[in-house]
């Protein structure tokens, strides 16, 4: 299995386009996932009976194979980018929701009571006390969800999207390993870089944790 470097040299534009499209799909899914799971997590955190239901539901959704999710969405949104992003979003929910709920649970009751005693309203406590303190656990979820989404985008190649995944089908159909190797390497690279950036973001957002560590 040899790498045809000239192919890579000739296709840098295509590789760039596919990488950007790949990243857009993955990040779009994580963003949508956060948009859905942050409010749901607050609900699950505050209203105990709903907690098991919401977490259980996201668990069941997670067991549905990614290819199946894409395919099951076909009658709704067809062979489009929307299908890719919705499918990936479903997958991010389980991690994002569980980590956000756990993060909110980990905030000490005394801290919340102190905020209340200082006259902070519930919404303000949530935004300025609870979410910041829950941030490390939430960010751990965001990191897992991001890496997972980046790796899963290529599954959408079966429904005609898939970013770098298209390189896999291309290489497979032509019995030509170079694009496949390029796709695998770029996917892992994207995941590693995105993960490192998220670590940096978390570091920047939690200055109070630095001195202790």
């Amino acid at each position: 299995m040899t790498i045809d470097w000239s192919w890579i040299g000739d296709h840098t534009d295509d590789l760039t386009t596919l990488t950007v499209s790949h990243l857009q799909a993955a990040l779009g899914a994580v963003f949508l996932g956060l948009l859905i799971s942050l409010p749901l997590a607050v609900v699950a955190h505050r209203i105990r009976p709903l907690r098991g239901f919401l977490l259980g539901l996201s668990n069941v959704l997670f067991t549905i194979p990614s290819i199946a999710i894409f395919v099951l969405l076909l009658p709704v949104s067809g062979l489009t980018r929307t299908t890719t992003v919705i499918g990936l979003t479903v997958y991010t929910l389980v991690v994002l929701l569980r980590n956000t709920v756990e993060g909110l649970d980990s905030v000490p009751v005394k801290t919340k009571e102190a905020a209340k005693a200082m006259g902070s309203r519930p919404l303000r406590t949530l935004l300025t006390v609870e979410f910041p303190l829950a941030l490390p656990v939430i960010m751990a979820g965001v990191r897992i969800a991001t890496v997972m989404s980046i790796s899963l985008v290529s599954v959408a190649t079966y429904i005609g999207d898939g970013g770098l995944g298209q390189l896999f089908t291309d290489g497979f159909q032509r019995n030509f390993p170079t694009p496949v190797i390029a796709g695998v390497v770029l996917t892992i690279l994207l995941a590693v870089v995105a993960d490192a950036l998220l670590v940096a973001v978390q570091y920047a957002l939690t200055p109070w944790l630095r001195r202790r560590a």
Partner: peptide, 11 residues
């Protein structure tokens, strides 16, 4: 988690 399964299979 980062390893794309589809790519691995084809490879």
């Amino acid at each position: 988690r980062a390893l794309p399964t589809v790519g691995l299979v084809v490879l």
